[in-house]
């Protein structure tokens, strides 16, 4: 197969572009990685650029010896796994019926759903609701109130709508009921989108510190992100919000420690993506089923 000349030029340009993008998105990460293994003086004197200077592990040892850190990690893992399954289940069960053209009530439910994207009663009513359900200081307060993100539902529905009607009709002729069609035909065909939305949900829960701040009182259940936030945020937020900063807020943790915490909290969730990519194989399903 011969590529045209202009396509060759494009390809070169493309490679350069991608290299630039890779660099500017990767560099801060490398920089922080290097910082986390360097000495405090090296960081302060701007001597760290790509590689650790005065290599040492003190930042990491001081974090991993904290029991709260590990406890937080365990909680985050628990929230993320259970929350992702719950979220995916609810998202699919809402998105699939809405993707069927002749599903009665589809339009009403869609509008009913989209409305909630824009109107909310604020934090206090939600807090009172969760508190009345007796969910304060439980995992439910973290994974349930944000279980369905309407954006995800709409995206998943769009994907479902792209599945050829012929395949569904064939299933009906074969005598499958509607749930069987979903589980035997639609879901196997929708692995890329399920993986993508699963990732979206997982990342959202992984990064969510706010629910924990609001709904949890005891630190046994705190996710690790709350720990991270406290280390990185310090008092920047207080000052930015216009409040006077007091003496207790002015001590800043060493940058090496901040960097190490960011590494420890970010790397696990980053590692999830390559596993999901295997579902992104071009033209994987629709073609293969037709053939």
């Amino acid at each position: 197969m011969q590529d045209s000349k202009s396509y060759k030029i494009f390809k070169t340009f493309n490679v350069i572009c991608m290299a630039c993008i890779t660099f500017i998105t990767l560099y801060p990460f490398i920089y922080m990685f290097a910082q986390s293994f360097s000495s405090a003086q090296a960081v302060i004197n701007n001597r760290v650029h790509f590689l650790p200077v005065d290599f040492n592990l003190s930042a990491y040892t001081s974090i991993i010896t904290e029991s709260r850190f590990w406890n937080g990690y365990r909680n985050t893992l628990l929230f993320t796994t259970t929350g992702t399954f719950l979220g995916l289940f609810l998202t699919v069960s809402l998105a699939y019926p809405l993707s069927r053209d002749d599903f009665p009530g589809k339009d009403v439910i869609l509008k009913f759903m989209v409305f909630t994207m824009f109107f909310s009663g604020g934090l206090i009513p939600l807090y009172l609701l969760v508190s009345n359900l007796g969910w304060i200081d439980t995992i439910w307060a973290i994974i349930v109130p944000n279980a369905i993100i309407i954006f995800n539902v709409l995206v998943m529905r769009t994907f479902f709508m792209g599945i050829p009607q012929a395949l569904i009709d064939a299933g009906e002729i074969d005598g499958l009921n509607q749930l069987q069609i979903l589980s035997h035909i639609v879901i196997p065909l929708s692995k890329p989108i399920i993986a993508t939305i699963g990732l979206f949900i997982a990342v959202q829960i992984w990064n969510d510190w706010f629910s924990a701040l609001i709904f949890l009182n005891m630190d046994d259940l705190y996710p690790v992100t709350l720990f991270l936030r406290n280390i990185v945020m310090g008092s920047q937020m207080t000052a930015a919000s216009g409040q006077a900063v007091d003496s207790s807020a002015v001590t800043t943790l060493p940058q090496t420690l901040q960097a190490a915490t960011i590494m420890l909290v970010t790397i696990p969730i980053l590692a999830v993506y390559p596993f999901i990519q295997k579902y992104f194989v071009q033209g994987m399903m629709i073609g293969s089923i037709k053939g």
Binding site: G121, G122, I124, V144
Partner: peptide, 26 residues
């Protein structure tokens, strides 16, 4: 679509409970 209604009822209860009920805050 009876079965699909069974499927969609849970997310709808969720929407009512966690999105619409707190709306009285408005």
């Amino acid at each position: 679509y009876g079965l699909l209604y069974c499927l969609i009822i849970l997310p709808i209860v969720y929407l009512v409970l966690f999105k619409y009920v707190p709306m009285y805050g408005i």
